[in-house]
Amino acid sequence: MSRTRSWVSDHLAMIIAVAVLVYLFLPVLYTFVFSFNNYRRSNITWNPEGSPTLKHWANPCGAPGVCPALVESIKIGALATLVATILGTLIAFALVRYVFRGRSSTNVLVFLPMATPEVVLGASLLTIFIQGFRMDLGFWTVVIAHIMFCISFVVVTVKARLQSLDPRLEEAASDLYANPRTTFLRITFPLALPGIVAAALLSFSLSFDDFIITNFVSGNETTFPKFVYVSYTRGIPAQANVIGFSMFLIAVLCVIAAQIIGSRRRGVAA
């Protein structure tokens, strides 16, 4: 009895941790299970008749609108990621590598969008697009908005990586006859790259999953999250579950692959 109690108290943190992980995965499991549901109108309640079925997995684009929405989300995500990663990386380099007037205000300007609730960002962008710039809402306004909120996250991520680099490595390169250009190309950039890649992945996932800001500025443009949200009232197709769960699988596989490559690169042979 007392041995059981001491085992429990020794492993308390781990027990709670496992319970929390189960909690985290519960909705994912639901999403997965309901992708096999032979539902009638909306994929909300389980229909024992004919379930489980593989028909939604066999035809993921079967529901009208779901695949076009996915394609739009990927296009927006790719564009926003590309631009935000470049702009944010440049800012991060300036902030870490240079002392200049206006550095602390730059830090504040980068921090503010992260401290602003999404509804406010969405509302203000909607207002400027309609009242100020008089732009038609759609694909491009969504891309512009996504770039805006991704930049700050890119700056933070790349900055953390640059700050953790030993400045002596660049000194060593220049000591070994590398001119500033070569030093950047051979040493600084390769060492900063993992941070830049992490920032790009982060940008993509933020853009891909964004709903609130997108909903404000998208007009008739439909992204994947917006598609799911809008169909909630009309009836969600199980194809949304198929796609949602596939994204999860792809992301997990990517992270695992990155981990394996990363640890092989570092080659920690103990």
């Binding site: 030993d166 002596r168 490595l169 000194e171 060593a172 390169a173 220049s174 000591d175 070994l176 006859y177 590398a178 001119n179 051979r186 040493i187 390769p190 060492l191 690169r265």
Partner: peptide, 28 residues
């Protein structure tokens, strides 16, 4: 500039390039 001098340094913390192999470090 440092790269214009026939001078090389062994740094206190070694400053080896972590992304290059030992041979690539020496051949740099």
């Amino acid at each position: 500039r440092p790269h214009e001098r026939p001078v090389n340094t062994v740094f206190q913390s070694y400053a080896l390039f972590p992304h290059l192999t030992v041979r690539e470090n020496v051949a740099f």
